[in-house]
Design a protein around this nucleic acid. Structure first.
Lengths: 224, 224
DNA sequence: CGTTTTTGATAGTAATACTATTAATTATTG
DNA sequence: CAATAATTAATAGTATTACTATCAAAAACG
């Protein structure tokens, strides 16, 4: 079996966490802890305790917890785009391609044995609850200049190309693509915590089907 | 001229800021400071300095800065819903009503002289950058139980009723309503900071027209 | 085997998010 | 109207957070 590993922007870390044992422990444990505590209550001290190391050692890998969060999120978007590419390989029909892509975006995320040290289920929950905190900051322009949002933009661009292939005349493909990426996560969050804001009923197994119908309808009716 | 004032949930504050001089100064200055510093860098100490009072005094009005942010955001949604109600009064055609509502949602927010101590332009920028931080927390269920998100839910419900009046058979009105509320703000944020994610070009005066076209098209095509 | 690199242990700082205490002011009531 | 109760402001203090600095021990590396 092939082992997956992605190269992420060097601006994200001080020292590449994929290169060492301690680095991988940091990634593994931070996913677990951010999922459990929420990003706001997650600290490098708690992380260091958890892996039996020290705060100072963690700082040798990541400048601060904001960069660590972006690292995890960039990893997720890169992984997701890879999976979409893999899935749509050899599909010629634009409509079929867009539908398959939407399927991949909406589907339940399960543990991917190709990447041993990452718990994709926990990471998916982190995406739902924390993604927007990465760019809703005062440093957004600086972070953007440093290329920290490239994986998200890249996926967005890919979706735009699929949309445009189906409907070359639709005027707002970028807005639609970025909207569905946020929408998918929001609707799952609402289903769970603010049910009056969504028509998706919370159900760990079944909710993804209805979510797909909602998204597919919205996309195809809008661009037709 | 009528003076507007809204009654917000008592769970939001320790002491009603509308009732005293100091309370109103807290509201006024917090809008200015959160807009300028961003919510993360905003503290009660800075706020207290700004209005020539003390941290402890601010804590007598709001339990913490999270509740203060929700207070501002609840005020905004209540104000916006009031303006929509006012606008669509006596409009009989469901289509016309929905369109007017979308117009109100998308339009540029300007200073409302009916509410002297609130700078709606600054508050609108706060909404764009900070709204999602109010519910993307670990305490969301508790806050929800305390009714802290009622104004947002109420506006959402109203939009649902307008959608349903136009298209009774559309299956996902709640999801659509909550999506456009988030989408409007996100697209304006992207236009400004992450332009490759949107087809709206940043332009403080003109951007709202194109935003409206995007939203109107998305809504009407989706529900038709 | 010696040198560079990496880690761990310890300590320290400035800022944040509160809490507790006391002093001053205002309101209530006999 | 004076005594007392309640409310508010000002001051100070605590625990936690987000880092930084230093130095010695351990690993890795040529």
């Amino acid at each position: 079996m092939a082992i997956l590993s992605f190269t992420l922007s060097q601006n994200l870390y001080v020292r590449d966490p994929q290169a060492t044992d301690l680095g991988q422990k940091i990634i593994q444990s931070s996913i677990e802890m951010i999922d459990k505590l929420g990003f706001d209550h997650f600290t490098f001290k708690k992380l260091a305790n958890d892996i039996g190391s020290t705060e100072a050692s963690v700082y040798r890998y990541f400048e601060n917890k904001h960069k660590l969060l972006i690292y995890l999120i960039d990893w997720y978007w890169t992984w997701l785009e890879y999976r979409i590419d893999y899935e749509i390989n050899n599909i010629k029909s634009p409509t079929e391609r867009l539908k398959l892509c939407l399927h991949k975006l909406c589907e339940e995320k399960v543990f991917d044995p190709q990447v041993a040290h990452v718990d994709e289920r926990a990471l998916d929950r982190i995406m739902i609850a924390e993604f927007e905190k990465t760019f809703l900051t005062k440093q957004v322009d600086e972070d953007n200049k440093d290329g920290l949002f490239l994986p998200y933009k890249s996926l967005c661009k890919k979706i735009v190309s699929f949309i445009t292939a189906v409907s070359p005349n639709y005027k707002f493909p970028h807005s639609l693509a970025s909207t569905i990426l946020v929408m998918i996560r929001h609707q799952l969050y609402y289903a769970r915590h603010l049910p009056t804001l969504s028509d998706i009923k919370y159900d760990p197994k079944q909710q993804y089907k209805k979510l797909y119908v909602l998204i597919e309808q919205l996309v195809f009716k809008t661009i037709q």
